[in-house]
């Protein structure tokens, strides 16, 4: 009986035929999309990669050597960028808590509330950070403040989504125990949900902080303050050696911050 069973099983395919056909079709569709888009972009590219290599030489000639004498003057703008990112990340981290809880299906059992917050967060995420910056610069004028607002809204969208997904994957057993011992909603969340997500929460906030540093550079170019604003000015005046210094400073800063936050995250998880 057992031998007969194992014999039939060894000659059986690992997946049913239907699944195989489906996966094959999906594979070819994806391949088709790739081929199509490759042909398309080739038509649009002027000169292809050969042209880019030629341009590269001109670019390097213009940008090098970087002018390090401006370092003292750009230092302040770089700090401003970091401050923007810190403030925006902090505000977003606080605002994200209620939003993330309300958009986690296992905690918010009231369906309408869940759908409303989920839709709100989805809408928030569809707005690109640059668009947010342009809107806020238009409303509040050039400066750091619109930059902070844009970063806050932008990172809130990402953070709330990531954290609500973390919440949805927690162990529900301790929550049941707290409920069974007569705790109310806030006590249940504080005692059994918060300890479970605290490490991931910190890790995700640090990750969003890194994203915010990079994003704030780009936002500066549309007038939202910080180092991006200065970089944009130098580029506009064709002051490429100065711009190169700024790029190097940004590069170094991002690397250092990533290194530090990676170390913190390693210690947490």
């Amino acid at each position: 009986m057992t031998t007969k069973n194992s014999l039939t099983q060894s000659s059986m395919p690992l997946y049913p035929a239907k699944t195989k056909i489906q996966v094959t079709i999906i594979f070819f569709v994806v391949l088709g999309i790739y081929t199509f888009s490759m042909i398309w972009t080739q038509d649009e590219m002027v000169g292809g990669f050969g042209g880019a290599l030629g341009n590269m030489y001109t670019v390097i000639e213009k940008f090098f050597p970087p002018n390090f004498t401006i370092l003292p003057t750009i230092w302040k703008a770089m700090m401003q960028t970091i401050q923007m990112a810190i403030i925006a990340t902090t505000i977003a981290a606080i605002l994200t808590v209620p939003l993330a809880v309300l958009s986690a299906q296992n905690i918010t059992t009231l369906k309408p509330l869940y759908y409303i917050t989920r839709t709100f967060l989805n809408l928030l995420r569809t707005i690109p950070d640059l668009v947010l910056a342009v809107i806020f610069v238009g409303l509040f004028g050039v400066g750091v403040f619109p930059g902070i607002l844009a970063l806050t809204v932008f990172s809130l969208g990402i953070l709330a989504k990531l954290i609500s997904e973390t919440i949805e994957s927690v162990d529900m057993n301790p929550l049941e125990a707290m409920r069974a011992s007569g705790g109310n909603v806030f006590q249940v969340i504080w005692y059994s949900l918060v300890p479970q997500i605290a490490p991931q929460f910190t890790s995700l906030v640090l990750y969003v902080f890194e994203i915010n540093i990079r994003a704030s550079v780009v936002l500066g170019m549309v007038g939202a303050g910080g180092i991006g604003l200065v970089l944009n000015q130098h580029l506009k005046f064709y002051n490429y050696p100065n711009a190169m210094t700024i790029i190097i400073v940004i590069f170094a800063t991002v690397l250092i911050i990533e290194f530090i936050s990676n170390k913190i995250r390693e210690a947490l998880l």
Partner: peptide, 15 residues
Amino acid sequence: RTKVGMIFQNYNLVK
């Protein structure tokens, strides 16, 4: 629920 305590198969402690 404060009057009726419960013990679970998986202990349900906050790890």
